[in-house]
Design a protein around this nucleic acid. Sequence first.
DNA 1: ATGGTCGCATGGCGA
Length: 258
Amino acid sequence: MPFTICTWNINSVRLRAPIVRHLLETEAPDVLCLQETKCPAEKFPAETFAEIGYTHLAVRGDKGYNGVAILSRIPLEDAGRHDFCGKGDARHVSARLADGTMIHNLYVPAGGDEPDREVNPKFGHKLDFVDEMAAIYRDQSGPAVLVGDLNIAPGEDDVWSHKQLLKIVSHTPVEIEKLTAAQTAGGWVDAVRKHAPEGKLYSWWSYRAKDWAAADKGRRLDHVWTTPDLPTHGARILKDARGWEKPSDHAPVFVTLG
DNA sequence: ATGGTCGCATGGCGA
């Protein structure tokens, strides 16, 4: 039975609960994975989404920072978490669907501005986090999907200018090397690029641009990876959502699986 | 032009 999963960095789920609900009402993914919810689990606006059928929830949150959630209209089992880098922050939540498919929802650290771990500990944290992604999924078995804001745009067509971003955190060679190693170690397939192998594709546009759409200086930071045993039927980035009222700086990414 | 804009611990930090 095919189902659709969506991942969206929402940049405060409380502020943007209305557009999350709008997305659920108009696009109706079976599962929605959110990142940067920026609120403790007890303050997650669960009822807003339960009212329209998204009654299943696996959520983790920190006050003001991070925060991840899996919202679903089909049952979720075995909600779990992995404590990346032993920091105790809310950057991962997992759950299993009734058919056995594992869902991993991740929010990889942005990594600060300076791409040098000697002077910027946030960059070191990001590199260590991605190394840990390689380690923990190395021996996985069974169907799984990994989604989230991985904060790395790996391909030349995943950024507006490969050359101008080579020293910009999110597109440096060391980050791309580590992300690729994590993908390979877990046997993950990039479901979005499987369906759109070539051409510019972005899921994030900075708030700082005067006119984000005209400048179109985007990056593909949000990803959906699947194990090879999971068939996928299509992928799509809902760029329109970047232009909605009070938008997130990220657009939702959809993949149909199963 | 090394800025710019967001959101939250309301003010400096993280993105």
